[in-house]
Design a protein around this nucleic acid. Structure first.
Length: 914
RNA sequence: GCCGGAGUGGUGGAAUGGUAUACACGUGCGACUCAAAAUCGCAUGCCGUAAGGCUUAAGGGUUCAAGUCCCUUCUCCGGCACCA
């Protein structure tokens, strides 16, 4: 047996697999299909680092197992090559983006090749290939025809670094550009927008149909879509019934507490343009505020506002309410105006306090009167706590005041108060006392008298008077409990509850009141979304041209489908112009075309599509990559969709929202047959550098897979990628870890040297069959790390065995093959001959060998493990008890005690209570 | 602030409510060797000479039995964030 020489072996097999077409997907097959998909990469100029391939390794392992299990596997790869980074890279290196992309793809492909991945390269796609983006443009046209693509002149996010407009999804939550980190500004400009909001509700609802998606990703999408249900209500201004102020609120039940109207600066500006002659002071304020808003800044700003000089009328209370223009209401949220309810909204509360606006309480907590009381733990504390629990009084360890260990915190409600008092009276001694540290019912402020609370306070006061003799010297209690203390508290109550000060609605619950009030003030219930329509124009060169022609006579004219694709022209200068126009605008021979309708000279749309366009549907093209007549053949689509498992990370709210949107649109138009593209999503964790930071060229902590593979070999690299930790969890790259998996591969190599034709040790047979079962399940569930550990256990068993049969070893090689395709293929070819291990049939585990005749289980005495016993796996309780009671170790612990309970859980444990 | 995820040896981590610390790294000792590397064997949670005791962020609860379920609190990571 030659020593393990990974370099020779890897090269040899990679070439042979390629030549034999081992991984090509059959076009017509009787086998069940399996579509395994990676999020395709952006071929950046930096090449891959060791953090990238983890997902590719996972799909590689998964698809290899599926192929061996008899599935017709589609495991393709492609390139998401349009967009800013490629273009910026090209500008920086003074080459054409197409050339840069070609170079980068070649490099990525070579790197992937070194890892021994099983992609079917005959189906490779590239979003920048005109034959591909013809269909991206085609989908845009379908959307245009359905009214889902429209022109807009709204101010949008503008990145001064990238010199282009951006979608909301491209802006980080700190207001910087996702790509270059520049501060994003607001800039008004003409752009194409996709009406993603029309699909918001369906995208939200259908998340519930995706049980195999990680909860976190679904939650991120729910947040992003941001549905809120509430009411739109008009506040009229005396004498101007034709100009009501429309507000949006999720809490119409608090309307009687609305003491002012707060209007966004953006809305005020609109009023100027429809004829409001506001004083200069107000106009200045609006301009100043808008300028501040234009620079997205999420640092907490102080709330400011200015009185508009007129009042509206609260439609519920008929009271006049002043209209304020403020900086804390956003134009693009809700209707851009709100009713200010300071008693029940913290932001309104803050604003009202600053400008001395009146505060009117209209909600009181329902029947959940709650006080928090601190009780130092009493002498027989277990007893006291048990009794508290019996009485249904919740308690917790107190964390503040004195020391943690000495006190507990008790939550009291109206219902359990009497019981609590009784209990304390029973247990209290002169060293113990009770302190009230707060109550959730403290809601009151100055002029807003919370009368219901006062009633309760009287009640409380009376109750606690009864304690007086018991708590003498504890003045805390009286201080905390005086009415004055409560009345000076300045808090607002945000929860729902019962209505007060609300006319005929008094006494209703918040829930009841909502509908009734909206109806009585002539409002209507509506749903609002945080999700905004998708800004789809980029003022850059390197993207799909938007297939639209602007004609002076005919207006906006879509390019006829027969003329697709609209290809990017070859140009000298593709750098952004910075004027808000695409560089394409300067190429007159491309821009000027006859109008398809009237044939007079017209101009092409010069904006291009964002990077996310191609990736929103690319997976469909793998199914039918060369079809020039349709996006995808209907029969092939039916055969291959859904994607059985989709693997990637980092795109919870961008790509995965856009792709779901496009897929649903295609479904509605009969192009695809499923409502969701990816029923199972496996999200992967990053691999961080050794220093715990993200790998990046600028930090100088990048580890290249090429070097690691050169040193340790692709198989050890692949095994380590899978072994490093749970797949979905962030992991840190540790070069030492590679040593372990390399040793393992070498160990397998050594075992190959000792296989014989005799039967294996029983131990080996058993472990092998358990491992086959475990590895099959683990790969299916993406638990690769425990699969690798199972391999190691099996290898250790085989190495120390006296005999390992050729057949058993071959089975081991087969289940290991998805992880270590090169070395297993090499060893397999020596034992088995010509046919590739990767097309061999996945071994089955022999259940008979997995079931053990005897099991060793632990024996607990009073909850502690004191001994263990080996018994038949089907032993009865009587047999077991007989044996157990005679074990010296057990007898020692139950000596002189009565055995109260003997619990026998077959194959698990014996538990004795004495 | 809201939502989601997590907290286990020196390190990465394992464990359908049933013998916590599998597997690997690291470390120590030993074998082989003139020597070293590689490899192999043994040991390795903490306290204790031992018997034994303690231990899954902290505290409490349910249970014969809790890393796992429930309550309270803390910390870290991620998403959203003046969203009305």
């Amino acid at each position: 047996m030659n020593p393990y020489d990974h370099k020779t072996i890897e090269k040899k097999w990679q070439e042979k697999w390629e030549a034999d077409g081992v991984y090509q997907t059959a076009e017509n097959s009787d086998k069940p299909k399996q579509f395994v998909l990676d999020m395709f990469p952006y071929p950046s100029g930096d090449g891959l680092h060791v953090g990238h391939p983890r997902g590719y390794m996972a799909t590689d392992v998964y698809s290899r197992m599926k192929r061996m299990q008899g599935f017709n596997v589609l495991h393709p790869m492609g390139w998401d090559a349009f967009g800013l980074p490629a273009e910026n890279y090209a500008i920086k290196n003074k080459i054409h983006p197409r050339v840069a992309v070609e170079e980068n793809i070649a490099r990525f492909k070579k790197q992937l090749g070194l890892m021994g991945v099983d992609y079917d390269w005959s189906r490779e796609i590239n979003t920048t290939d005109p034959a591909f983006y013809k269909w991206t443009q085609w989908i845009f046209l379908q959307m245009y025809h359905k009214g889902l693509a429209y022109e807009s002149w709204e101010p949008i996010n503008w990145c001064p670094g990238c010199q282009t407009g951006l979608a909301n999804e491209d802006v980080e939550s700190d207001g910087t550009c996702e790509r270059c980190g520049s501060k994003v500004e607001k800039k008004p400009m003409r752009q194409w927008v996709l009406k993603i909001t029309e699909y918001a509700d369906r995208m939200l609802l259908d998340l519930d149909k995706l049980p195999k998606w990680p909860e976190g990703v679904k939650e991120a999408q729910r947040n992003w879509i941001g549905k809120s249900e509430g009411a739109e209500i008009d506040f009229l201004m005396p004498g101007q019934p034709e100009h009501p102020i429309k507000i949006f609120t999720t809490r119409p039940d608090t309307i009687f507490g609305a003491t002012f109207i707060a209007v966004s600066a953006g809305l005020a500006k609109e009023w100027f343009s429809v004829g409001w002659k506001a004083p200069q002071e107000i106009q200045d304020y609006v301009e100043k505020t808008l300028a501040e808003e234009a620079v997205k800044d999420f640092k907490e700003k102080e709330k400011t506002g200015i009185y508009a000089g007129f009042d509206a009328v609260n439609p519920a209370s008929q009271q006049p309410v002043p209209v304020w223009i403020t900086n804390y209401v956003m134009k693009d949220v809700g209707t851009g105006a709100i009713m200010g309810v300071p008693a029940h909204d913290e932001r309104d509360f803050e604003f009202a306090n600053k400008y001395n606006l009146s505060i009117k309480q209209v909600i009181v907590p329902g029947n959940k009167m709650k006080a928090v009381v601190v009780v130092p733990t009493l002498e027989n504390d277990t007893l006291f706590k048990k009794e508290l629990q019996k009485a249904g009084i919740g308690f917790a360890l107190a964390t503040s005041t004195i020391s943690k260990r000495e006190q507990i915190r008790v939550e009291l409600t109206k219902e359990n108060l009497q019981e609590f008092i009784d209990l304390v009276q029973k247990h209290i001694t002169e060293n113990n006392w009770v302190e009230i540290i707060g109550s959730e019912n403290i809601v009151v402020k100055k002029d807003a008298v919370y009368k219901d609370f006062l009633n309760q306070a009287d009640e409380w006061f009376k109750k606690f008077q009864e304690w007086e003799p018991l708590i003498q010297g504890q003045k805390n209690l009286w201080d905390m409990f005086s009415k004055n203390t409560f009345l000076n508290e300045l808090v607002c109550y945000r929860e729902s509850g019962n209505l007060v000060n609300s006319g005929k609605f008094d006494g209703m619950t918040s829930e009841e009141a909502q509908k009734a009030i909206v109806e009585s003030v002539g409002g209507k219930m509506v749903s609002k979304y945080k999700l905004k329509d998708w800004v789809f124009s980029r003022q850059r060169y390197w993207g799909e041209p938007i297939p639209i022609i602007h004609c002076e006579k005919c207006g906006v004219v879509p390019v006829p489908e027969a003329d697709l694709p609209v290809t990017l022209p070859e140009v000298e200068s593709y750098a952004p112009t910075g004027t808000g126009e695409s560089p394409l605008a300067n190429i007159s021979e491309w821009v000027n075309v006859p109008c398809p309708k009237c044939n007079e000279m017209a101009k092409r749309e010069t904006n291009t599509m964002p990077q996310w366009a191609g990736s929103s549907w690319y997976y469909l093209r793998y199914i039918d990559p060369k079809n020039n007549a349709a996006l995808v053949d209907k029969d092939k689509e039916k055969n291959w969709m859904d994607v059985d498992v989709y693997v990637g990370g980092d795109h919870a709210t961008r790509h995965l929202i856009y792709a779901r949107f496009w897929h649903k649109f295609l479904y509605d138009n009969g192009i695809v047959s499923t409502e969701e593209p990816f029923p199972r999503l496996e999200f992967l964790g990053f691999i961080l550098a050794h220093d715990g930071q993200k790998m990046s060229k600028s930090k100088g902590n990048v580890i290249s897979p090429d070097e690691v593979i050169a040193q340790f070999g692709a198989d050890a690299f692949r095994l380590y990628q899978m072994f490093i930790g749970p797949f979905e969890q962030t992991a840190m790259w540790n070069a030492n870890g590679m040593v372990g998996t390399l040793r393992f591969v070498e160990k397998v190599w050594r075992i190959a040297g000792k296989v014989a034709d005799e039967a294996s040790d029983l131990e080996v047979q058993k472990t092998l069959n358990k491992t086959i079962k475990k590895v099959s399940e683990d790969i299916e569930g993406f638990k690769f790390n425990t699969a690798v550990s199972a391999f190691m256990i099996l290898a250790n068993t085989m190495e120390s065995a006296t005999s390992v049969s050729k057949d058993d070893f071959k089975k081991f090689l087969q289940i290991l093959a998805p992880f270590a395709p090169h070395s297993t293929e090499e060893l397999w070819s020596g034992l088995h001959g010509e046919k590739s291990i990767h097309t061999s049939a996945w071994p089955r585990s022999d259940e008979k060998l997995i079931t053990e005749d005897t099991v060793t289980i632990g024996i607990q005495v009073n909850g502690k493990v004191r001994a263990e016993i080996e018994i038949a796996h089907d032993a009865t309780e009587a047999e077991v008890k007989e044996k157990v009671m005679n074990i010296p170790e057990v007898m020692k612990w139950i000596e002189g005690k009565e055995v109260k309970k003997f619990i026998f859980i077959p194959k698990k444990i014996i538990s004795i209570v004495a």
